[in-house]
Amino acid sequence: MKVLALADLHGKFFRLDGIIKKSDRVDLVVVAGDLTHGGPPENAVRTISILKHFCRHVLCVPGNWDPPEVRQAIGQYAVNLEETPKIYNDTEFMGLGGSNPTGNNTPYELSEEEIAYRLDVLFSHTPAARTVLVSHAPPLSTLDMTPKGAMGSSSLRSALDKADIIICGHIHGARGKVKDGAWVINPGHAAEGQAAIVDLDTMDVVWIDSVF
């Protein structure tokens, strides 16, 4: 199963044309948050519409920059994995939106205690053959380094042995693929034309760079 993974578009939906032109055919599109930069919801709707013309299955989580009205729009026009986990071909996709505190008072931040509770709920049922957690924030100390240090979630770090694959974003300069218990993939900064095609069966990744 192949997915087009992207994160951190921050309202720059015009970048999607270049990303799509460089993408192979995929089974699903996964968006790991920050469809907008504080809104408006119309930017999220436009993003989802463009992606649905490319692939009809679009799965999203909101990011820390996506306010309540954007989160509502995601659920109306795509699958919001925070609200509705989905199973495709024995693979369960589940979602954790927002982020741990950033220090910037962005629209959708969660305490580590709330993140831990939500993860407990997500993993409380019998898992499918393969589990993909789509999280806006990365785990602490995995694809989360910034000039200010590691900015990932400690609660997510504690869940690395519960998911098979984590697709995340949030840290724009931390693009990559790392095996750290789970496979952790940050597809890059979509607002700068970055994305990734991930083969979930082989874990091969094709990096997309549509802006030079």
Rank of each mutant, 00 (worst) to 15 (best):
L16Q: 03
S23C: 14
R71F: 01
V58W: 08
L6F: 10
F123H: 11
D27Q: 13
N100C: 13
H57Y: 08
D90W: 02
V134K: 01
S124M: 09
G38R: 07
L51Y: 07
T47G: 07
V132K: 11
Y77M: 06
M94S: 12
E114S: 13
V30D: 03
Y117N: 12
Q76V: 00
Y77W: 14
G18L: 06
E92G: 06
G75N: 13
S141C: 09
T131S: 13
A44P: 03
D8S: 06
Y88C: 03
E109R: 02
R71N: 04
L96W: 11
G18P: 02
G33A: 05
V30K: 04
R118I: 11
P138L: 06
C55V: 12
A32Y: 04
A44G: 07
G11K: 07
A137P: 00
P101S: 07
N104K: 14
T91C: 13
A129H: 14
V58H: 04
A78L: 09
F54V: 03
L35C: 04
T126A: 09
E113W: 11
E82S: 08
L143V: 10
C55A: 11
H136P: 04
V70G: 01
L119H: 11
H136F: 04
P85T: 01
N105E: 13
H136A: 04
F14K: 12
T126D: 11
L4G: 02
K86W: 13
K21H: 13
F54W: 03
H125E: 14
V70C: 03
I115F: 08
L119R: 10
F14N: 12
S111G: 15
A116M: 03
S23G: 08
L140V: 00
H53M: 11
S141D: 15
H37P: 00
P101V: 06
Q72P: 00
T131Q: 12
N100P: 02
I19Y: 05
N80D: 15
E82F: 05
M1L: 13
A128P: 03
V45A: 14
G95A: 11
A116E: 15
D24S: 15
Q76R: 15
